[in-house]
Simulated scan of single mutants.
Amino acid sequence: MNFKDLAKNRYTTKKYDATKKIPEAEVNQLKEILNLSPSSINSQPWKFTFVSSQEVKNQLADVSYFNDAKVKEASHVVVFSVLDSVKLFEEQIHKNLPEGPISYYNQFLKPKSDDEIKAWMSHQVYLALGFFLSACASMGIDSTPMEGIKSEGYASILGLENYKPLFSVSIGYRDTEDANQPSKKPKSRLALEEVVVEL
């Protein structure tokens, strides 16, 4: 299946088949793919937490607003977190990046406020989300990106220090009766000419 067909068939899964689990080899492949995600200046200000434990998923469900069923029933929940300390981020890039990217950071980002730098770091995590959703689709794995989570609750349950959960993604295999799948509910998008401009 080519990428356009994958895009047509991929959708936000609303109901999972809780009896179907993603094989470990494919989970490991997704971990490797996330590790290859793109980011500005190769900054990588992130952490990805894979949760398969039903006990932990149940705890996360309690702090996931209306997404609780998707968290409980999915094979795995992947939590995308961003570094929550500019100081630690700067230590990381000085340790891992060459002079060029560090110079870019020092010139264009470091003069900004901590809140602006943290917003920029969060944008990098969203780049990884798009990469991940596409990877799942290519592997026949269904997914549900969810911003509807209580960040502090997730951090406490997962024992995250210096990282702030931004969103999570449930992954697994759809229930055949999921009403949101394209065969039951056709995709709705704005007209191409409304969103794509050529100059």
Rank of each mutant, 00 (worst) to 15 (best):
1 M>Q: 10
2 N>C: 01
4 K>P: 01
5 D>Y: 07
5 D>K: 15
6 L>V: 10
7 A>C: 15
9 N>C: 03
9 N>W: 10
10 R>V: 02
10 R>Q: 08
10 R>D: 04
14 K>R: 12
14 K>E: 07
14 K>N: 11
15 K>G: 00
16 Y>P: 05
17 D>P: 06
18 A>T: 08
18 A>F: 10
19 T>I: 06
22 I>Q: 06
23 P>D: 11
24 E>K: 14
24 E>S: 14
25 A>R: 12
25 A>Y: 09
27 V>Q: 07
28 N>K: 15
29 Q>Y: 11
30 L>S: 04
30 L>Q: 09
30 L>K: 08
33 I>M: 08
34 L>M: 11
36 L>N: 13
37 S>I: 00
38 P>R: 08
40 S>Y: 01
43 S>F: 10
46 W>T: 03
46 W>R: 05
49 T>S: 15
50 F>R: 02
51 V>F: 02
53 S>R: 07
55 E>D: 15
56 V>L: 11
59 Q>S: 09
60 L>W: 03
60 L>Y: 08
62 D>L: 12
63 V>C: 07
64 S>K: 05
65 Y>K: 14
68 D>T: 11
69 A>V: 13
69 A>G: 04
71 V>P: 06
73 E>V: 03
74 A>N: 04
75 S>L: 09
76 H>T: 05
77 V>W: 05
78 V>W: 06
79 V>R: 10
80 F>C: 06
81 S>Q: 09
82 V>I: 07
83 L>T: 11
86 V>A: 05
89 F>E: 04
89 F>M: 09
89 F>G: 01
90 E>Y: 04
92 Q>G: 09
92 Q>L: 15
93 I>L: 11
93 I>Y: 08
93 I>W: 06
94 H>G: 05
95 K>H: 14
96 N>E: 14
97 L>T: 00
100 G>W: 11
100 G>L: 12
102 I>F: 03
102 I>Y: 05
102 I>S: 01
103 S>C: 08
103 S>D: 14
103 S>E: 13
105 Y>P: 04
107 Q>E: 15
107 Q>Y: 11
107 Q>M: 13
109 L>E: 13
110 K>T: 06
110 K>I: 06
111 P>F: 03
112 K>D: 08
113 S>Q: 12
114 D>S: 11
114 D>G: 04
117 I>K: 14
119 A>W: 02
120 W>C: 05
122 S>Q: 13
123 H>P: 02
126 Y>R: 08
128 A>S: 12
130 G>I: 00
131 F>H: 15
133 L>H: 01
135 A>F: 07
141 I>N: 06
150 K>E: 14
150 K>F: 13
151 S>A: 13
156 S>K: 15
158 L>M: 01
159 G>Q: 07
160 L>I: 05
161 E>L: 09
162 N>R: 13
166 L>T: 00
167 F>S: 08
167 F>T: 08
168 S>F: 00
168 S>R: 04
170 S>G: 01
172 G>R: 07
173 Y>C: 03
174 R>P: 02
174 R>M: 10
176 T>M: 09
177 E>G: 02
178 D>K: 05
178 D>C: 06
179 A>P: 09
179 A>C: 09
183 S>M: 09
184 K>A: 11
185 K>C: 12
185 K>E: 11
186 P>D: 07
186 P>G: 07
187 K>T: 04
191 A>V: 06
192 L>V: 14
193 E>K: 15
193 E>C: 02
194 E>C: 02
195 V>A: 02
195 V>M: 03
198 E>S: 11
198 E>I: 13
